[in-house]
């Protein structure tokens, strides 16, 4: 197996008495979709926050492309190539969809300290941004403020932003949430192709999507990974069935 893109070892994070992350180890390998599932409050989002840099873990290591990223803030991790989408969409609400993506394009170019040239006439920003919107199917909504997009469209926009960053790994936190069945299906198909660009760590409650997409699944319960394996292994794991799937199914 190739070197993992993202390598998490023995990560711990407590909030007071709550062990939100309790010794998690996890790999994300090139070309795979690694789904992270678990009941509400299992610590999935807390884990994503530590990987992306919003929270600092108490102990453990996170290596990305072979580099320990513990000391880097969120912006520096994003520049290295960690693209994320948020559980609750996080966009510049007043900016149009296009301008949200243009921001990612300029970030990737490292040109945010240019003070005079107008961005709206700058084809080196607008064209790549428009191309990303087209890829996620939002081109027709490019000029609407993010605040006026539907929930599902905002999810798509977040993914377009992550694409525009040229991310080397994607962290998607419940990208299907708030989408209708049609939208979920379309997004599942899209993510299926995306894995060849960069591997995806996917937190998702939509089990149809998880079973359709995941090469491997890790099950998180009370801050611990109780099982990691292929879809079939996880489906037939008695402990997983008891802790999680049994309740849900």
């Amino acid at each position: 197996m190739a070197e993992p893109v993202l390598e998490i070892r023995d990560l711990k994070k407590t909030f007071g008495a709550l062990k939100a992350t309790d010794g998690v180890s996890l790999d994300l390998r090139p070309g795979e979709v690694h789904a992270l599932i678990g009941p509400n409050g299992a610590g999935k989002s807390t884990l994503i926050h530590q990987i992306s840099g919003s929270f600092r873990p108490d102990s453990g290591t996170i290596r990305f492309l072979g580099q320990d990223i513990a000391g880097l803030d969120m912006a520096a991790r994003a520049r290295l190539g960690l693209g994320r989408s948020f559980q609750i969409s996080s966009l510049a609400q007043e900016f149009s969809a296009l301008r949200n993506v243009m921001l990612a394009v300029q970030a990737r170019q490292g040109t945010s300290f240019r003070f005079f040239r107008p961005v709206m006439n700058d084809k080196s920003l607008t064209e790549p941004a428009m191309a990303m919107l087209e890829r996620v199917g939002l081109a027709g909504r490019a000029h609407l403020p993010a605040a006026e997009l539907s929930h599902g469209e905002r999810r798509q926009l977040e993914i377009a932003i992550a694409l525009a960053l040229g991310s080397k790994a994607f962290l998607f936190d419940e990208p299907m949430a708030g989408m209708g069945p049609e939208g979920s299906k379309a997004l599942t198909k899209f993510l299926d192709g995306l894995r060849h660009e960069a591997p995806i760590l996917l937190v998702e409650h939509d089990m149809d999507a998880v079973f359709a997409l995941a090469d491997r699944i890790s099950v998180l319960v009370y801050g611990r990974v109780i099982a990691t394996g292929t879809v079939d292994q996880i489906r037939n794991d008695p402990e997983v069935r008891r802790a999680y799937l049994g309740e849900a199914a």
Binding site: S52, G53, A75, A78, L103, A107, S112, V119, I161, L165
Partner: peptide, 23 residues
Amino acid sequence: GSRFGAALQAARQNATRLAAVGI
């Protein structure tokens, strides 16, 4: 209207989003 202005206005609207794209 510049790139800097875009980043600055994004910082006002949503600083987390700005950091998440690497600025």
